[in-house]
Design a protein around this nucleic acid. Structure first.
Lengths: 141, 141
DNA sequence: ATCGATGTAACATTTATTGTTACAACGATA
DNA sequence: TATCGTTGTAACAATAAATGTTACATCGAT
């Protein structure tokens, strides 16, 4: 099981940008330093966050910043940005046997329920926004 | 991302047992046939379901059966049975940098929220039981 | 004794994530 | 216009986990 650490790295990244982009240039190297990751990995990830319209990154001179009100960026936005939408959360075994009444209909039976479970997750993710997280971070700074 | 297909295979397996264990011996080979998986994989999985007190498997003669009222087996029970409890659903990057206020406190900030999201998922899983799924299956038989 | 089945170990295969090296292109600046 | 640190991206390496496979001792019924 397991949802990739890309997700938590992405949240961490957004928080670093939110905290520091006023006072210094936030480069992929700087973020990699805080997340204990790798600059290239971070650049890939920033690419996805950019694609999703959450951040902008200055070419040449460098540095990332957030281009949407923090209050309007939820964990779901970040999740969707870094986890490809086509890939379902629940893996499914391939080619269940059509000659068996269970195998033949397992998707009909399960898909809706699995979607419900995903939705429950999404709903909770939508309730948590970056502004909140930033406020929980500030006391430590 | 992605939660292993072990979960859907396990649900599928439980449904096959529920449907057929009255009329025939449900062996790992039979289940592997319906799920398009492998008998050894299924035996491993049955071992986990057995461990969790959901099924029993006859040694020697063979065949699995469910030993709990279907109404009392929810998708969460199956999930817990096959996905090791110690492994969190959300992967987390290792050793975030303690010299950065974000890195130092990222767990304090995030862990609770991630748990909330997991809980939302679990709550929904708990609302779906095998009896229900069996009833959705029967019309196809 | 034989038969089909389980439980388990050991290993192979596949796939995804994560890390790394390399480099062209970029934009500011001296 | 030469230099500098940076980005974006490709290509590849390393790691890890899931899944499939082979093999075999053991079991229980007949």
């Amino acid at each position: 099981m397991r949802i990739t650490s890309r997700f938590t790295i992405a949240i961490h990244t957004m928080l670093v940008i939110a905290c520091f982009s006023d006072e210094r240039k936030v480069t992929s190297k700087f973020i990699a330093g805080s997340t204990n990751s790798n600059p290239v990995v971070i650049r890939r990830l920033l690419g996805q966050l950019k694609e999703a319209g959450l951040v902008e990154v200055k070419k040449g001179v460098g540095g990332a910043s957030i281009i949407k009100p923090l209050r309007d960026i939820t964990l779901q936005d970040i999740f969707d940005a870094v986890e490809p939408a086509d890939e379902k959360i629940f893996g499914f075994h391939d080619n269940p046997n059509c000659d068996c009444p269970v195998g033949k209909n397992i998707h009909t039976i399960l898909d809706g329920h699995l979607l419900d479970i995903e939705q429950a997750m999404y709903n909770k993710m939508r309730q948590i926004n970056l502004q909140e997280l930033l406020e929980e971070t500030k006391p430590y700074m």
